[in-house]
Computed example of a mutant assay.
Amino acid sequence: MAGCVYIITNQKRGTLYIGVTSNIERRIWEHREGITPGFASKYGCNRMVCHEEHDNIGTAIQRQKSLKRWYRKWKIEIIEGLNPD
């Protein structure tokens, strides 16, 4: 099963949330609608700013855990490199 790591935010250079899913369209819809309670809903994170697709969910989960340990500056550099707007 394929997996996807994504980063969402509430505004430019705002709060960042890093997640992983096997169905990116459904998951982003859930964030936008505020269906799932938790960190992203609490801070209003509903704008996807970048995502990475992986061949399997295990690789995606490893990448998510790795990104969560990164400094905020590094995460913003990735986002602005892939999505300058």
Rank of each mutant, 00 (worst) to 15 (best):
Y6K: 00
T9G: 10
F39R: 14
Y43T: 04
E77H: 08
C4E: 04
N46H: 14
D85A: 00
N56C: 14
N23G: 13
K42C: 10
T15S: 09
I8Y: 13
A60R: 02
C4P: 02
P37I: 13
I57R: 01
G14K: 12
R32W: 01
N46S: 15
I8K: 13
R47A: 00
Q62L: 03
T15C: 11
L67F: 11
Q11D: 09
I28C: 06
N46Q: 13
H31M: 01
W70V: 00
Y43E: 01
I76R: 12
R26Q: 15
N56P: 10
I57H: 02
Q62R: 12
N46G: 09
S41V: 09
R32N: 11
K12A: 07
I28M: 04
K12S: 05
E30S: 12
H51A: 03
L67I: 04
I61K: 05
A2H: 06
T21A: 07
Y6Q: 02
A2E: 12
F39I: 10
V49G: 02
I8F: 10
W29G: 10
V20A: 02
Q64C: 04
I61G: 02
R63Y: 07
E80H: 11
G3R: 02
W29E: 13
R26F: 09
T36W: 00
I8C: 09
T59I: 03
F39C: 05
G44T: 08
G38V: 15
D85W: 11
E25Q: 11
G38P: 12
I57G: 02
W74E: 09
H51S: 08
K12G: 03
I79Q: 07
I57M: 10
I35P: 09
I8P: 07
E53P: 00
V49T: 06
R72H: 09
V20F: 03
W70A: 00
R32K: 15
V20N: 01
P37L: 12
W70E: 13
G58R: 08
P84M: 01
K75P: 00
I76N: 10
I61Y: 05
K65W: 11
G58S: 12
G3D: 04
R72M: 09
Y43I: 08
K73I: 12
I24H: 02
I35A: 13
R63G: 00
E30R: 08
V20P: 06
G44E: 01
G38L: 13
R69Y: 10
Y71V: 06
E52R: 06
Y6L: 04
F39Y: 13
I78E: 11
Q64S: 00
I76K: 07
K65E: 15
I78V: 15
E52C: 00
